[in-house]
Computed example of a mutant assay.
Amino acid sequence: MNIRVNGQTLHFSKEKMTIIDLLSSYQLQEKIAVVERNKEIISKEAYRRTELKDGDMIEIVHFVGGG
């Protein structure tokens, strides 16, 4: 499956993949990330059930603490 993540096309060997799987591959926790799929913001409650499809365009914004 090929998906575009933050402007970069990536290949994943999994046939089925959810947003949670994608976040895990980047070692991001769902509570600190906002995900947009094909220009639509996905609610955090839907991350586990939203399956990605070949050609999807994903934007991930995550929050980093500091001081």
Rank of each mutant, 00 (worst) to 15 (best):
M1A: 01
M1N: 00
M1F: 01
N2P: 05
I3Y: 00
I3Q: 00
R4N: 12
R4A: 06
V5D: 00
V5L: 00
V5K: 00
V5I: 09
N6A: 03
N6C: 04
N6T: 04
N6I: 09
G7E: 02
G7S: 01
G7K: 02
Q8P: 02
Q8T: 15
T9Q: 13
T9K: 14
T9W: 14
L10Y: 12
L10N: 06
L10D: 03
L10R: 14
H11K: 09
H11C: 03
H11I: 07
H11L: 03
H11W: 07
F12C: 00
S13R: 08
S13H: 11
S13K: 11
K14V: 03
K14D: 05
K14C: 02
E15I: 00
E15S: 04
E15G: 03
K16P: 01
M17S: 02
M17Q: 03
T18V: 06
T18G: 02
I20R: 07
I20S: 12
I20A: 06
D21M: 04
D21W: 06
L22S: 01
L22C: 01
L23I: 02
S24G: 05
Y26T: 04
Q27F: 14
Q27H: 13
Q27N: 14
L28T: 02
L28K: 02
L28R: 03
Q29L: 10
E30R: 14
E30N: 14
K31E: 15
K31F: 10
A33I: 10
A33S: 15
A33Y: 12
V34W: 05
E36W: 05
E36S: 07
E36V: 11
R37M: 14
R37D: 11
N38F: 08
N38K: 10
K39R: 13
K39T: 11
K39D: 12
K39Y: 08
E40M: 12
E40R: 12
I41Q: 11
I41M: 08
I41S: 07
I41G: 04
I41L: 12
I42M: 04
I42K: 03
I42Y: 05
I42W: 04
I42A: 02
S43R: 13
S43G: 10
K44T: 11
E45W: 06
A46L: 10
A46V: 05
A46G: 05
Y47I: 03
R48D: 13
R49H: 10
T50A: 08
T50E: 09
L52S: 05
K53D: 11
G55P: 07
D56P: 06
M57Q: 15
I58T: 08
I58D: 03
I58Y: 04
E59D: 13
E59Y: 10
E59P: 11
I60G: 04
I60T: 12
V61P: 01
V61H: 00
V61K: 03
V61R: 02
V61D: 01
H62Y: 15
H62M: 09
F63H: 15
F63L: 14
F63D: 12
V64G: 10
G65V: 09
G65L: 10
G65R: 12
G66F: 07
G67N: 09
G67Y: 07
G67F: 10
G67P: 06
